[in-house]
């Protein structure tokens, strides 16, 4: 017994190294290290680099010249920036329509009839095809000379509309194209969510006389909260990533009226005529600050969720 107690009183001098002694504390960090390293190199450090570049006047080749907040003060009276910023808000707001639309399609498809799997896949189809293809399909749909939209309008005697050539309509036209696949995405999220709805609660509510809208609002939707949260997250991310549709459908035009911040940044910093790295970085910083609001909200609600779970 005494001999067994000895090693505890006198810790082994040769065998137990510093790592062994701190194993419990160190190991999680070791496992996290690769992820932290790459997250730092590819996400966190570039954020600070962007902040830094946005304080310079730099064409990417020659000497960078420090101009302080010059790029930001130029942004303030850059009308193209203002247009892009407003378009970003239009995207954020209108893109959220995908959530209720997806919910209603999911409710509609959540039944057992012959061939329902086929209908579900057909509704999900637009999400599977590439954004580039969606953009092309809608470009042809809107085409002022042979597009389906104007053919249909023509039947009702309405004049031809050049959606993608009209500065007031163009952003809405592209958002409509983006909603098509995004609705499908939200629909699939809600369809899985509906599988998890507790039938006993529905039964109990029915006994209490709830039906129709009341049933939906008080019984079903609260149970779909996780699905709604994910749908909200992916839709906001989708709205902020609207670059590809704009690039395919209008290239930012006509005369820059359909640009969003990400597209404007690309044009200023990286396109054929661009290479104002500092100015592009300043736009990116503004876009990042907008995203930061959402990121903070998402992190906060996830944190709250986890606390509530315990």
């Amino acid at each position: 017994m005494t001999s067994a107690a000895l090693p505890q009183a006198h810790p082994d001098r040769g065998g137990r190294g510093w790592y062994r002694r701190n194993e419990i504390a160190i190991t999680p960090w070791l496992f996290l290290a690769p992820a932290i390293l790459f997250f730092m190199v590819y996400v966190i450090i570039p954020i600070f680099q962007s902040f830094n570049i946005s304080l310079y006047d730099w064409d990417g080749l020659g000497e960078a010249r420090f101009i302080g907040l010059g790029n930001y003060s130029e942004l303030l009276d850059d009308r193209a920036f203002e247009v892009s910023l407003w378009n970003n808000f239009k995207w954020l707001l209108l893109y959220l329509l995908a959530i209720p639309a997806g919910l209603f399609i999911a409710l509609f498809l959540n039944q057992t009839v012959t061939g329902i799997r086929l209908y579900k896949s057909l509704f999900f189809f637009p999400f599977v095809i590439s954004q580039v293809v969606v953009g092309l399909v809608f470009t042809w749909f809107y085409d002022p000379t042979f597009g389906l939209l104007n053919t249909i309008l023509g039947v009702f005697g309405l004049g031809p509309v050049n959606v993608l050539g009209d500065p007031t309509l163009v952003t809405y036209g592209i958002i409509a194209a983006g909603l098509w696949p995004q609705t499908a995405y939200c629909m699939i999220l809600y369809l899985t969510g509906l599988n998890a709805v507790d039938p006993e609660q529905v039964e109990a509510a029915r006994l209490d006389g709830a039906k129709g809208w009341k049933m939906l609002w008080f019984i079903i939707i609260p149970q779909l909260k996780p699905a709604t949260f994910i749908a909200f997250v992916v839709t906001i991310i989708g709205a902020l990533r609207s670059f590809d549709l704009i690039s395919i459908m209008t290239n930012g035009g006509p005369f820059g009226t359909s640009r969003v911040l990400s597209f404007y940044m690309f044009e200023k910093a990286l396109s054929e005529y661009g290479f104002r790295m500092g100015y592009g970085a300043a736009i990116a910083v503004v876009l990042f600050l907008i995203m930061l609001c959402f990121i903070a909200y998402f992190l906060w609600s996830m944190y709250r969720e986890e606390k509530g779970g315990r």
Binding site: P254, F255, G256, E272, Y273, G274, R276
Partner: peptide, 12 residues
């Protein structure tokens, strides 16, 4: 380049 891109947008 920069002048050209702004000007051509203006032409359109």
């Amino acid at each position: 380049a920069e002048m050209a891109s702004e000007a051509m947008q203006g032409f359109q």
